[in-house]
Design a protein around this nucleic acid. Structure first.
Lengths: 154, 154
DNA sequence: TGTATTTAAAGGTCAAAGAAAGTCAAAGTA
DNA sequence: TACTTTGACTTTCTTTGACCTTTAAATACA
């Protein structure tokens, strides 16, 4: 597993360092450095540096333009409550989305990898073997309880 | 004449070596090497590298995709698999028993208190809001997947 | 000089092509 | 009968390229 997008992700993270809150990129320069299409950079930002993963993106076009990544350090409680009201608003959630929630929590450092594994497992279609239909509704209930349980832990 | 699947199994095991915990495969490459259909590889994985046989499988599709096999720590495996076959034998479990399983795991040191909270939550009747009846069956499925997921850690 | 216009330098979007792996059912084999 | 093998089709993730929008700087002009 060593793919261009992963390299770019790593590179950006190394630029940001462990403790910095912010880094500024030049899209074209980066694309040049990795010999790829500039839009590749957007792809990496969209898939690896989304708000759900704990980053905000600001940018400016034109001469002297830039892309600025800001790492947000969310309060656990707020973030989880936001997830509950956001992703579970309509009382159902797909397996895919639920697992994204889990992996996002991990990448934000709000849960550890063991907890992430459990979350991923319990929202899987495998865990929820119903004949058909309302899996997504049930899954939402399970995920919700799990998330609320996380609130308790400090 | 040993059969193709057996050869593939052996080959993968030799790749992993005696002491490695993990090996990464390329499905198509392997299939090529054995001149078989790619889905043959899935068959081998499903029949020879299941959790019950001591392996977890992670994978990723698309460019840079891979299949990763993780060998489960045997002693942990025994504990947990014993639980699975014991408590979940008949495919259902009460909320009370499920929660006992969780707290037992905690006191055995196999999970931390955060994980225990999650487990307790996801097997609660609150999480599983079905109109009526088959909660215990569903709960068993959820618990089982959660336990199997734990096998991978550490 | 001050404003309007043009140009060039960024970054953004989207869809298509490519690169894996997954699924499932049918056919083959022991 | 149960296990194995295959192949067609699906899903997911990545990469590229063509075209669009925004902005700063340069230039023209009144």
């Amino acid at each position: 597993m060593a793919i261009l997008s992963d390299h770019i992700e790593e590179f950006i993270k190394s630029l940001m360092g462990e403790y910095d809150k912010m880094v500024e990129l030049q899209r074209n320069e980066l694309a040049d450095y990795f010999s790829c299409a500039p839009s590749q950079i957007n792809y990496v930002l969209a898939t690896r540096f989304s708000p759900e993963k704990g980053y905000l993106i600001e940018s400016r076009r034109g001469g002297g333009g830039y892309i600025r990544l800001v790492r947000i350090n969310p309060s656990k409680k707020e973030h989880i409550l936001a997830l509950v009201s956001d992703k579970l608003r309509d009382g159902k959630i797909s397996q895919r989305d639920a697992q994204t929630v889990a992996s996002d929590l991990l990448s934000m450092g709000l849960i550890d990898s063991k907890a992430e594994k459990i979350l991923t497992a319990v929202v899987s279609d495998k865990a929820i073997h119903l004949p058909v239909g309302n899996k997504d509704k049930l899954r939402a209930g399970i995920l919700k309880e799990a998330l609320l349980a996380l609130l308790g832990e400090e």
